[in-house]
Design a protein around this nucleic acid. Structure first.
Lengths: 255, 255
DNA sequence: AGAGATCTTCTGGTCTGACCAGTCGCCTGG
DNA sequence: CCAGGCGACTGGTCAGACCAGAAGATCTCT
C-alpha cells in the first residue's frame, strides 16, 4: 500500500478548452448557475479565463452539445444556461439505435424492460395526484379517438410520460422517454396505417390504458408490468423481422 | 390537410459547424467510417468543406465530446474514429446523477431494472460460448480473492459486462455498463472498506456469481433476475439514505 | 552495417484580429 | 405617444500566425 501511495500517475495533457468547459459545467451542476441564468459574453469570458476566444468558443460548443447551455447570435445577455436535460441522453440513445449496433428489435426489447419496471414501480409507489392525472389523460384520449389522430398520439405520449414519472424515478422516466422517442424515430414512415386501422389501434390503446389504470389502482405491480410488455409486443411485433420477433417473445415470457 | 400542406415551417438558422458535424457523424453512424479509421487532417477538412479552420475545429469538438472521435496533437494520421460507445451515455447519466435531479438511489434502482432484465434474457438466450466465457471469468475471480483486490474489481466488471452481452441485446448491455460506471463514479470514495471487509465482500461476490451461473445453466430467467436485484440491494443499501432504501426495497419486492 | 542522435515536416492546440449579420436599447422626429 | 432609425453590442466565421509534440527521414558515429 505504501509503495502504491508514492507511485505517480501518468500525467495526461489537459486542453485549455477542456478546463474552461469543466469549470463552467461545475458551476452549472452545482446549482451556482441555475437554469435560466446567463453566461457572460464570449469576449468577457476571454478576459476572465485569460485564453483566446477560439478556446472559449470550443468550450461553449462542448457545453452546448451536451445540452447544458444554448446560445443565440446577437443576444446581448450571453448564452443561456439550460441545466441538465434528458436531451443529451436521448441523443446518445438515438446514436446507439441508429448505429448498426442495434436494430428496432433491440430497441423495443429495451423499452419493454424500462416500461415494465416503471409500470411496476408506479403501481406500488404512485401518489394520488399521479393517478388523477393519468385518469384525466386517459379520458382525454378516449374523447379524441376518431377525432384527431395527431392529438391522440400526443396525448398517448403524455400518458406514458406521466406513467413513467409516477414510478418516482426520474432517471427511469427520462430513459423511457428517450427510448420511446428513439423507437418512434426508427419506425418513422413505416407506420402508415389506413384510417380504419388507425381507429382500431386507438381503440386498443384506450382499452390498454384502462387495464393499466386498473392494475395501478389495485397496486398490482407485476400485472401492470405484464400489460406494458404485452402492449409493446402487440404494437411492434409486426414491424420487426422474424429473428427480432423471437427476441421480443423471449422478453415477454416469464415476465 | 391541404391547408397544413402549404403552411411554412419556421426556418431556423443552421450553423456551419453543425452541418460539418452532421456530415461526419452521418458517415460514422452509417459505417462508412468504421472505428479505427482516420479522419483527414484539419487543414484538409478545411479544403474539403470550404470553411474556416475554427469551424472545422468546433465541429470536431462536438464529435469528440460525443465520444465519436478522438484527436491527439501531432498525430499525422488525423483524428481517430471511435464509433459509438457507451461513454457518452455514462457521461450523461453521470451528469443526471450529479445534478439534484437524480441521486444514488435512483441510479441503483435503475441499474436493478437493467441488470435484472439482462440476467433474465441471458438465462433464456445465452449461447454455449457465453457460458464458457462467464465460467472462465468466475474462476479467475475466485483465484484473485485476497490476492489483488484491484484486479478482482476489474474481473468483476468484466463478468458483469459479459453477462449483459450474453443477453443478446447490445443496447441493453451498453446501458447497463454506462449505469454501472455512473454508480461507480457516484459512490467513489464512500467505498472505503477495510481489508477484512473487502475480503468478505469478494467472497460474497464469488458466491453470488456462482448462483447466477447456476441459474443461467438451468435457464431460470426469473431466478437470475431476482439474484441480480438482490445482489445490488445487498451491495448498495447501506450507502443510500432511508428514503432511497425504501425505494430500493420497492424495486426488490414482487420482482 | 547497425544504432543512435538530429532534422524536417507534418499534426493539433492556441492566439490574434478582423468582418459579418443579426439583435436590442436608445433616441429622435413625427 | 409611438415609429423608425441609429449605434453598440452579440455570436458566427474566417484568415493567418505561432507553438509544442509526434513521426519518419536523414545523418553521424561506432
Amino acid at each position: 500500500m505504501a509503495a502504491d501511495a508514492v507511485s505517480f500517475e501518468p500525467v495526461r495533457p489537459v486542453r485549455a478548452y477542456q478546463r474552461v468547459a469543466e469549470q463552467i459545467e461545475e458551476r452549472i451542476l452545482s446549482g451556482e448557475l441555475p437554469p435560466g441564468s446567463r453566461l457572460p459574453a464570449e469576449r468577457e469570458l476571454v478576459r476572465q479565463f485569460a485564453v483566446g476566444r477560439s478556446t472559449i468558443r470550443e468550450a461553449l460548443r462542448v457545453l452546448q452539445s451536451s445540452g447544458l447551455i444554448r446560445s443565440r447570435p446577437g443576444d446581448p445577455l450571453g448564452a443561456e444556461v439550460l441545466g441538465v436535460s434528458p436531451d443529451n441522453l436521448s441523443q446518445a440513445l438515438d446514436r446507439l439505435a441508429r448505429s448498426h449496433l442495434s436494430g428496432l428489435g433491440e430497441l423495443v426489447q429495451f423499452r419493454m424492460a424500462l416500461d415494465a419496471e416503471s409500470y411496476r414501480l408506479a403501481a406500488r409507489l404512485h401518489r394520488a395526484e399521479d393517478l388523477a392525472e393519468l385518469e384525466r389523460l386517459a379520458e382525454r384520449m378516449a374523447e379524441l379517438v376518431a377525432v384527431d389522430p395527431r392529438a391522440f398520439g400526443e396525448a398517448d405520449a403524455a400518458f406514458h410520460r406521466s406513467l413513467a414519472e409516477a414510478s418516482g424515478n426520474a432517471l427511469l422516466a427520462l430513459c423511457a422517454r428517450a427510448v420511446h422517442d428513439a423507437v418512434a424515430g426508427a419506425i418513422e414512415g413505416k407506420l402508415s396505417r389506413s384510417g380504419e386501422e388507425a381507429e382500431a389501434w386507438m381503440l386498443r390503446s384506450v382499452e390498454h390504458h384502462r387495464q393499466v389504470l386498473a392494475a395501478l389502482r389495485a397496486g398490482d405491480g407485476p400485472g401492470a408490468a405484464r400489460l406494458g410488455r404485452q402492449a409493446l409486443y402487440d404494437h411492434y411485433a409486426e414491424y420487426v423481422g422474424a429473428a427480432d420477433r423471437e427476441r421480443l417473445r423471449a422478453a415477454l415470457d416469464e415476465a
